[in-house]
């Protein structure tokens, strides 16, 4: 029953792997960005911009791990919703005995696995330029759990974004805004602990924090073991919320396609 979806994932993996040049440029650009971030943070810390509980080596670790995570999280398997609607191929997909959301998800997972494989050489290259802290096994395990939950939240945020295309094909601007917001508010670029006062509290309350910030703060030890479970719970809540919302949106979208003919 799940065989088709396994095949979709395999095919997505193979498809991504055919773009070899892109794969190597991606590793190259990642290493470069890691180096720039190290220089930047080193300079900032020298100007005494250091926050209370994150020393420079912790900050560089944070930035590097965030970079590696982005290799995986920037894969957007649901982008094909938009493409399929624009090209009209969604109709032929609907004539197959498959669930389309599961299809998109497995395709995304296939792409993710390829990019996850890239994390290893990227990490090795990055290690030539920066030193990163290695946490103990329990912390790393907690990081992985938080990462997976964040992966789920990220998938559904993307899914919802791309589903806008069912109603209007001009969703690019919205996508861009959400992307910028999420880059900044997810903790991918700067740790959310850097945001001051009330603003800091707001960003932690937003769903974007579940994507990068939670796993990263666990990794560098700002979220202590005593708060792990609570952090997972918040992530799981977001996951559940966005998954349900996606299901609703999907049902409405399918209705619209079958009534209006796409």
């Amino acid at each position: 029953m799940f065989e088709p979806y396994l095949e979709f994932a395999k095919k997505a993996f193979a498809r991504e792997a055919t773009y070899r040049l892109e794969v190597f440029t991606e590793i190259g650009s990642l290493v470069l960005r890691v180096y720039i971030l190290r220089s930047l943070w080193t300079a900032l810390y020298a100007q005494n911009a250091a926050p209370i509980n994150l020393p420079l080596h912790g900050m560089i670790t944070y930035a590097t791990v965030a970079m590696l995570m982005s290799l995986i999280l920037e894969v957007d398997g649901t982008r094909m919703i938009r493409e399929k609607i624009r090209e009209g191929t969604i109709a032929t997909d609907l004539m197959k005995p498959i669930s389309l959301p599961l299809y998109f998800f497995s395709d995304g997972v296939g792409q993710t696995v390829l990019h996850a494989v890239l994390v290893v050489p990227s990490l090795l290259c990055a290690l030539l330029l920066v030193h990163i802290d290695v946490p103990n096994a329990a912390t790393f395990g907690a990081f992985l759990v938080a990462f997976l939950l964040g992966y789920g939240v990220n998938f559904f945020v993307n899914f919802l974004m791309n589903s806008i295309a069912f109603w209007t094909l001009e969703s690019f601007a919205v996508q861009l805004i959400v992307r910028w917001a999420s880059d900044l508010l997810s903790g991918q670029i700067i740790p959310l602990t850097f945001f001051p006062g009330i603003f800091g509290r707001v960003v932690f309350a937003l769903p974007f924090a579940a994507i990068y910030s939670t796993p990263l703060l666990i990794y560098v030890g700002i979220i202590p073991p005593s708060q792990w479970v609570a952090s997972f719970a918040v992530q799981a809540l977001w996951l559940l919320l966005f998954a349900s919302l996606s299901a609703l949106v999907w049902r409405a979208a399918e209705q619209k396609v079958v009534i209006q003919g796409g």
């Binding site: 095949e7 193979a14 498809r15 191929t89 109709a91 032929t92 005995p97």
Partner: peptide, 25 residues
């Protein structure tokens, strides 16, 4: 559809067939 292919654009033809085998079981 003459105007629209249901084959997978990036894949060799045989792999589209393999995929359909999995889809329809």
């Amino acid at each position: 559809f003459g105007q629209r292919s249901q084959l997978y654009w990036d894949l060799p033809l045989i792999e589209s067939f393999e995929l359909l085998r999995a889809i329809y079981g």
